[in-house]
Design a protein around this nucleic acid. Sequence first.
DNA 1: GTCTATATAGGGATAGAC
DNA 2: GTCTATCCCTATATAGAC
Lengths: 244, 244
Amino acid sequence: MSETFKAFRCGVQLSTQELSYSIFRQDPEAVQVKKEAVAVRNLTRIVDATLRLANSKGFQAMSLRDLSAQTGLSMGALYAYIRSKEDLVSLIQQHGRLLVGGILRDRLAQVRDPTQRLRVAIRTHLFLSEMMQPWFYFVYMEAKNLPERERRQAVEAELSTEHLFHDIITAGQRDGGFRDIDADLLAACLKAVLQDWYLKRAKYHRRQVSVDAYAAFAEDIVLSYLAPSASRTRPENRTVADQS
Amino acid sequence: MSETFKAFRCGVQLSTQELSYSIFRQDPEAVQVKKEAVAVRNLTRIVDATLRLANSKGFQAMSLRDLSAQTGLSMGALYAYIRSKEDLVSLIQQHGRLLVGGILRDRLAQVRDPTQRLRVAIRTHLFLSEMMQPWFYFVYMEAKNLPERERRQAVEAELSTEHLFHDIITAGQRDGGFRDIDADLLAACLKAVLQDWYLKRAKYHRRQVSVDAYAAFAEDIVLSYLAPSASRTRPENRTVADQS
DNA sequence: GTCTATATAGGGATAGAC
DNA sequence: GTCTATCCCTATATAGAC
């Protein structure tokens, strides 16, 4: 049986606090405040407020005075944590990608069978975006507004997860019994479906669709499309029970 | 055989010029310039430049000075065509929706069979977004930055096309032989796949995927998922030839 | 109808006290 | 480490000439 979101969440260190800690550790010359406890606490506030404000009105439209009000820090204090407004976007994107990418790689390293790899890739991607929805939404929406260098990194990161899907599919076509379908297009569409989960999260929440249900659906549509004509994949039994 | 994009394009009046004409006709108190030829020509320039600039750096980040430079109109002249920067977004969204929505409705009114309706809905949606890609991209990306009232209209419009897909699917489940699949989820995923076409257009262009090929793929994956287990839908024969 | 010149506000960023 | 006060620039929007 596949892992549920509840189980997944317990085994993973991923939050805006982790992100802030990563910024504090790796960019010491960007963060002037040296006391770890204070720095991480306030950085976390800054990151959370930035995601909240930018996701509701856009990053450009969010002023540092808005940010100052939301975090409880003064304008001057903000600049003890960031070098500039632009710097803030870069840090959030960069370190978030570091965390998320690492977890996805770790999870997949343990699986060999193409069908299982596809299932794990789908679920992990969805679960990560569920835990960090504001970050995923932010990166997607603000990517085009970044300076050239950062923008290219964002596009590359996105393509690399698409290539991951693509490689799993072609591997399955070689030796997993998958049908001979355009792997490029299928990977792209799968990516689009997974992205919809965090882009339209409010809609799915309103309809009471759980991330586990969405994952099961995504797996089913892709795997049954890839399965040889005669046999359709049966969706796995899933317990709705909540014990993790 | 399904209609190709080339054929579709010939039978449809849809462009930023049509959009500008719609603005000129319906918002006479917004546009101070009264000579139709001049007004529509300059409005078209303004709309085109706005879409270009906003889609590359974001609407907020685009200044009216940028717009002035791109259109060749002075700051003062711009204000003979729009009441404010915010007004500009509203007009573009509103009138675009009017045009696009009308065409989609017209096309579907002629078809009864659920399978054919689904095909036509998919193709029409893709073809419209192909003809007006900058507009679709703009509306998607800037929706969340709109004032409350406009934002709700944008969300409603999006949900209404999703409901359209939903209704076709459930109709097909009643009397078209479609499998009993969660119609809500499938409609949502189909929408996501169609949106990916205009959101990631550069990627598909680079890979030389034509809109006709993408349409065929989208139809195939959805219809084969809905088809009863035994029989898979065969993709229709498609000519690659260019005669329209 | 279109231009130049200007009013006015709000933004990012910094200086220097505490 | 954090605050207040301030600098300076750019943005939207308008006035008034042509």
